[in-house]
Design a protein around this nucleic acid. Structure first.
Lengths: 122, 122
DNA sequence: TTATTATTCACCCTTTGAGGTGAATATCGA
DNA sequence: TCGATATTCACCTCAAAGGGTGAATAATAA
């Protein structure tokens, strides 16, 4: 039922704030992979990649399934929803405010017939 | 001309990965405010808020303008664009892949007339 | 001029991330 | 059984985040 808490969003965004982890996710968004496969493109140690994966798991952006000695990782896009919603909400707030301000300024222009600097009222 | 580098995205997402900073941005998305005003709702020290603001500035999510002794902070939504695009791209990749897989499975069902478990091929 | 207000600077402390190395564990293949 | 492969565990180092306190700076107000 997806009751995303504030701390979940923290973990999600923190997990995304690293280029290695974003690359791993990008890879996984196109299909499952093993740890070694994920580590391959990077110059860092397998161990470091393993740690990145753990952080992604903690954020629930990645799921793990064991197949013998291999660990198969798969992408889970669900936590991205909350992140996306947060960002879009702020953008919408901001845009709405700018538009309201714009309308206000235009009304004043019509009433007073004088030109005004948009930045003044910010 | 907006050449968003990887490191910029790092900074943006890292700045967003803290509840205090998200609250500050949410407040600023509805209009400018001074440092003290921003610090007001929080139990942490003014100094800590000041540091959070600096991190938001570094990520260019907040701009500062000095008016006498007061520092007026304003929201800048521009860095959110790259973050939003990254997230939506991954979701689109993933969704597209799932749909392609779905079509494949339906084709096989028609051909072989047998039921298959969607998870099997993941 | 002198308080008061707004904000930052300079430190301190603790936790955690990001990287490394070497050993441990578990499974596969011959 | 035994060596190779896949992955993690335990430990180390360094840098930075997030919190704090007290002093410094700058501007307003009395």
């Amino acid at each position: 039922m997806i009751a995303a808490k504030v701390a979940d969003l923290d973990q999600t965004l923190m997990a995304l704030a690293d280029p290695t982890r974003r690359a791993i996710l990008q890879r996984l968004s196109q299909g499952e992979a093993r740890v070694t496969e994920l580590a391959d493109p990077f110059s860092i140690s397998l161990n470091s990649v393993s740690k990145h994966i753990r952080i992604l798991e903690r954020a629930q952006l990645v799921q793990r399934r064991r197949l013998g000695r291999e660990h198969i990782l798969s992408f889970n896009s669900q936590p991205l929803n909350a992140a996306s919603i947060w960002i879009e909400t702020q953008r919408a707030n901001w845009t709405a405010r700018l538009e309201a301000l714009d309308r206000l300024l235009q009304t004043q222009d019509r009433t007073a017939g004088k030109q005004s600097n948009q930045k003044e009222m910010l």
